[in-house]
Simulated scan of single mutants.
Amino acid sequence: MNFQMNKILVAKDLSKGSSRVIRYALELGCKFHAQVHVLHVMPTVDSSVLNRVALTMGADTLAKFNALNEADLAEKTRVQLDEIIKTETELMAEDHVNPPQIEVHHGDPTSMILAVADRLDVDMIILGSHSKGKLHYAFLGSVAEKVLRKTNRTVTIVPPR
C-alpha cells in the first residue's frame, strides 16, 4: 500500500493549544512534503441578535459596520496565525518547511471546515480537542465530533496536553 499525503488542512481557533496543533500539522507536512493549509473560522453572530441590532442601527448601517469589522478582525487573525506559524517553524528541527496557506472565514465552524476541505481536496483534516468534559458533549456536541461524522476524509484529533 502506497500512502501519499499532498494537502493537509488544520482547523484551529486561537486558544492556548493552537500552537501545538499547528506544529503537529507542520511536522506532518514536512514528513510527507505536503502543503499545509491553516484555517480559522470565526463564528457569526446569531441572527436574532443581528435583527435586534438592525432595528436600532438600521440594516444598512449594520451591514457596513459588519463588513468593516469582519475584514479587520480577519486580518488581525491572519497576523496572529502567521506569528504562531513563524514561532512553531523556528522550534522545529526540520530544515525546510513549506510556508502554509492561511485562510480565515466567518460562519459555522463545522460547515466551513468541511467546505474548505472539499474545495482544497485535502488528504487529511487535523483538529484540536478542547476536552471540555462529558456534560458539554452530551448537550452541545463538538466541532471535532461533527467533522468526524460528516466527512469521508482522514481526521486526526490532537488532544490537549
Rank of each mutant, 00 (worst) to 15 (best):
I85Q: 09
S142L: 02
F139G: 05
A117M: 08
I113Q: 05
P109K: 02
R149M: 04
N98I: 11
M124A: 07
V97N: 03
H106Y: 15
A115G: 08
V116L: 02
E88G: 10
G128Y: 06
A93W: 09
M112Q: 12
G128M: 06
S111D: 13
A144F: 03
Y137W: 07
H96M: 08
E103M: 04
A144W: 00
R78L: 05
A117I: 07
D95I: 06
E83Q: 11
F139D: 09
I125G: 00
D121E: 15
V104M: 00
L91D: 10
L91K: 15
A138V: 10
V143G: 01
G107V: 02
K132D: 03
D123F: 09
S142K: 03
K150P: 00
S129P: 00
E145R: 02
L135F: 14
E103K: 11
D95V: 08
G128C: 09
T87M: 13
K76V: 02
E145H: 02
D123W: 04
M92C: 14
G107H: 00
A93C: 09
I113P: 07
A117W: 04
V79I: 15
Q101A: 12
T89A: 15
H106P: 01
G128D: 03
H105Q: 08
D123P: 08
Q101Y: 01
T87C: 10
A138C: 06
E94V: 10
T77K: 04
V122Y: 06
R119S: 14
H136Y: 15
N98D: 09
H136A: 12
V143N: 00
V143W: 00
I113K: 00
V97M: 08
H106K: 04
S111I: 11
H105C: 06
I85P: 09
H106M: 04
T77H: 02
G141L: 05
E145F: 02
M124S: 00
M92P: 05
H136M: 12
I126K: 07
I125S: 01
D82M: 06
V104Y: 02
H96E: 11
M112D: 04
A115I: 05
V79M: 09
E83R: 10
G128N: 06
K150N: 15
K132H: 14
F139M: 14
D121W: 07
H136P: 07
I125R: 01
D95A: 08
L135S: 09
I125H: 01
Q80R: 13
S111F: 09
V97H: 05
E103T: 06
E90N: 13
I85L: 10
H106C: 02
D95T: 07
E75C: 08
A117F: 08
H105Y: 08
T77L: 03
E145K: 02
T110A: 06
T77C: 10
D82G: 11
I113Y: 01
V122H: 03
P99D: 14
V122C: 11
S131R: 13
L114D: 03
G133Y: 13
E75L: 12
V116H: 09
E75D: 14
L127N: 09
K132F: 05
N98K: 14
Q80L: 13
V97C: 09
H106T: 04
D95M: 05
V122P: 12
